[in-house]
């Protein structure tokens, strides 16, 4: 249903695939993905392209996924503080769970997310990988 929608994919193209976020033009706070009011009350944001570099704030390994992600399980997920300040939730890839640590430096990579059925569209998005 919505997970298969190519319109959503088109609308979120900048966020999902180019890591373009938003910086409040009043206080400078950065956000990944559009938000309503900034915490400072401002409604106006400038676009900002994130470098894709950041640090792990917390992480886990999901062993049992939702329908679309079942075949990928188990997989690692983290909350990451990007160097530019915004906080993002993303999967971690190309890593062993046992090697992960809070504070570890990671960087963004483009990866396959899930497939809409046997002949459907393959959905891509941003994952992160530890910097070695």
């Amino acid at each position: 249903m919505f997970r298969e929608s190519s319109i959503i994919r088109w609308r979120n193209y900048n966020d999902r695939y180019k890591l373009i976020g938003y910086k409040c033009d009043q206080c400078g706070k950065t956000y990944f993905e559009k938000k309503g009011l900034c915490t400072c009350g401002s409604l106006t944001f400038d676009e900002i392209e994130f470098s894709g570099k950041g640090k792990i704030v917390t992480y886990t390994k999901v062993h049992s996924g939702a329908e679309a992600f079942q075949e990928q399980a188990p997989f690692c997920v983290a909350i990451i503080d990007l160097d530019e300040g915004a906080r993002i939730t993303a999967q971690l890839t190309d890593c062993d769970y046992e090697d992960l640590k809070i504070g570890m430096e990671v960087e963004a990579v483009l990866r396959k997310f899930y497939k809409s059925g046997e002949k459907g569209v393959i959905h891509y998005g941003t994952k992160f990988t530890p910097k070695f």
């Binding site: 999902r16 983290a78 939730t89």
Partner: peptide, 21 residues
């Protein structure tokens, strides 16, 4: 949905992130 569900997160996953922190 867009910030968490799209990334494959589940509810146990969200609370596991809190537990780890």
């Amino acid at each position: 949905e867009e910030l968490e569900g799209f990334n494959g997160l589940t509810f146990p996953g969200l609370y596991a992130l809190l537990a780890k922190a």
